[in-house]
Amino acid sequence: MREILLVVDVQPSFAPPDWLVTGIRTLAKRMPSVATVERHDESHTPFDRQLGWHPARDDDSLVDVDRVFIKYGYLPPREMLDYLVAMQLARVLVCGMQTETCVLAAGYMLFDAGLTPTLITDLTIGSSLDRTGELGTALWRHHFRQLTTIAQLAA
Rank of each mutant, 00 (worst) to 15 (best):
M80H: 02
T101D: 07
S13L: 10
D41W: 02
D130F: 01
W53S: 08
C95R: 08
V68W: 03
A56I: 03
V65K: 05
D82R: 15
S43G: 07
M31I: 06
L129D: 08
G23K: 08
V21R: 08
Q11E: 13
L135V: 10
F144Y: 05
F144R: 06
T101W: 13
T101Y: 14
L81C: 04
L62T: 04
L84C: 01
D82M: 08
E3S: 15
D58P: 12
D60W: 11
H142P: 00
E79A: 15
I70C: 04
L62S: 09
T121G: 00
M80R: 05
A106Q: 06
F69T: 06
T99Q: 05
V34R: 10
L75I: 01
L129Y: 09
A86N: 12
H143A: 11
V92Y: 02
I120A: 05
T124C: 14
A154N: 10
L119C: 12
Q50T: 00
A35K: 09
T132Y: 07
F111K: 11
A138Q: 10
L51G: 06
L139K: 03
L139C: 09
A113E: 04
P77K: 11
E42V: 00
G23Y: 06
V37A: 11
R145W: 01
P77M: 03
T22I: 01
T137I: 13
H142A: 12
L5K: 09
G126W: 01
Q98Y: 14
M109S: 14
G96N: 09
F111Y: 15
V63F: 03
L135H: 04
D122T: 05
Y72D: 03
R145T: 13
V7M: 13
T137P: 04
L119Q: 01
D58V: 12
S61P: 05
A138H: 02
V34P: 03
D18V: 09
S128Y: 09
F111I: 03
L51T: 02
R30V: 00
L6H: 02
E100F: 05
D41V: 10
A15H: 07
V63Y: 00
D58S: 15
M87Q: 15
R141P: 02
D9S: 12
E134G: 11
L147R: 01
T101I: 15
T36L: 10
Y72Q: 01
L5G: 10
T118F: 01
M97G: 02
A106W: 05
L104E: 04
T116E: 13
D59I: 15
D82H: 14
D82F: 06
F144I: 04
A138T: 10
Q98G: 04
S128C: 02
L20G: 06
A15T: 15
E38C: 14
A86H: 04
G114E: 09
S128D: 08
L115D: 00
I120D: 02
D122P: 04
L51A: 10
L153H: 01
S43C: 00
V21G: 00
Y74M: 07
D66N: 15
G52K: 06
L110Q: 05
P117H: 06
S43Y: 01
E3R: 15
V65E: 04
G114P: 08
V94H: 07
